[in-house]
């Protein structure tokens, strides 16, 4: 078989049990989640089982891909597939966040002013609108989360981590393994630091500011947006950590390191989302 480079050498993996394992995981997680939000006895158990299976699958599946990559099975064309795949995945994530940013925009610009307008005076004579608000009917007092304390520090942390991951990428391309290891280490360290500070901030919000999920429009959008972002940073940090472990194990070459790049793209994405959060959730209140 003589084929030109790229075509014809496309790696089609042999039959694999991982997809089935993943479907079983989601079966348990789906039912587990539905049961636990309804406080049925089995719920958390099912959820935990499903999650454990999912983690097992992720390790097994990504492990298999890493081994395939290291044994040189991926042609340039496969590499390009991964690039397309990752780009479109990030686009789908952008749209996911767009839904929540859209909700924030709609409430601030449309709903809240409308609830305070003349027509609604009969219902809620004292409601004056304005942001941040818990809405016309939730009277519990709360304080908003200001931008210039922890959030500003967190911004600095994430922006720095964007620099360190690029620094590591340069090193990888020049085959400077030491700098690569250090850069990656710093990146995921900063990532986890961010998550830790965010958790601390939540504690502060709940105990000192009385700012909760149930705090009307402001509380809902605040926790939904920062929560999903924090979740993505956590995922991203874990991914960076895995990549770091692979680097320590000698994976990746200056030419062939899409695993690294994909995670770096993802990291820049959570970085950019954070800037949006910083401006629209923290700053403009």
């Amino acid at each position: 078989m003589s084929q030109e480079a790229g075509h014809g050498h496309y790696y089609v993996p042999a039959p694999s049990t991982w997809p089935m394992v993943g479907a079983i995981a989601l079966f348990f997680m789906g039912f587990g989640a539905a049961f636990s939000v309804n406080r049925l006895p089995l719920g958390y158990g099912l959820l935990a089982i499903g999650f454990a299976i999912l983690v097992y699958m992720l390790f097994g599946w990504f492990g298999a891909v890493a081994r395939e990559s290291e044994s040189g099975k991926f042609s340039a064309q496969v590499d390009k597939s991964f690039r397309w795949g990752m780009s479109w995945f990030i686009f789908s994530e952008v749209m996911f966040f767009a839904a929540f940013f859209g909700a924030l925009y709609y409430m601030r610009v449309h709903t809240v002013p409308e609830l305070a307008d003349l027509e609604h005076k009969i219902l809620w004579p004292d409601f004056t609108g304005g942001w941040p608000t818990a809405g016309p009917w939730i009277t519990e007092k709360f304080m908003p989360m200001g931008p210039w304390g922890l959030p500003a520090i967190n911004t600095l942390i994430l922006l720095t981590s964007g620099v360190t991951v690029t620094w590591a990428h340069w090193a990888l391309k020049l085959n400077k393994r030491g700098q690569l290891k250090l850069g990656l280490f710093l990146t995921f360290f900063l990532g986890f630091l961010f998550v830790g500070l965010q958790a601390y901030e939540y504690g502060h919000a709940y105990s000192d500011l009385n700012l909760k999920m149930t705090t009307g429009a402001y509380g809902a959008t605040f926790y939904m947006l920062t929560g999903f972002h924090g979740f993505h940073v956590t995922l991203g940090s874990i991914m960076l950590f895995v990549i770091w472990c692979r680097v320590m194990a000698g994976h990746f070459t200056p030419e062939n390191h899409f695993g690294f790049e994909g995670v770096a793209w993802y990291w820049h994405f959570v970085d950019v989302v954070w800037l949006g959060l910083f401006i629209f959730v923290y700053w403009l209140i």
């Binding site: 939000v37 809405g135 009917w137 939730i138 429009a217 509380g219 809902a220 939904m224």
Partner: peptide
């Protein structure tokens, strides 16, 4: 599809975690 995911996630938290995305009393709609 991700936008639908966002919508039903808000529905889920409104149902189970006390958010007010779709409740006018809390400033939602």
């Amino acid at each position: 599809m991700p936008v639908l995911a966002g919508a039903i996630t808000m529905l889920l938290t409104d149902r189970n975690f006390g958010t007010n995305f779709f409740n006018a009393a809390g400033g939602g709609d």
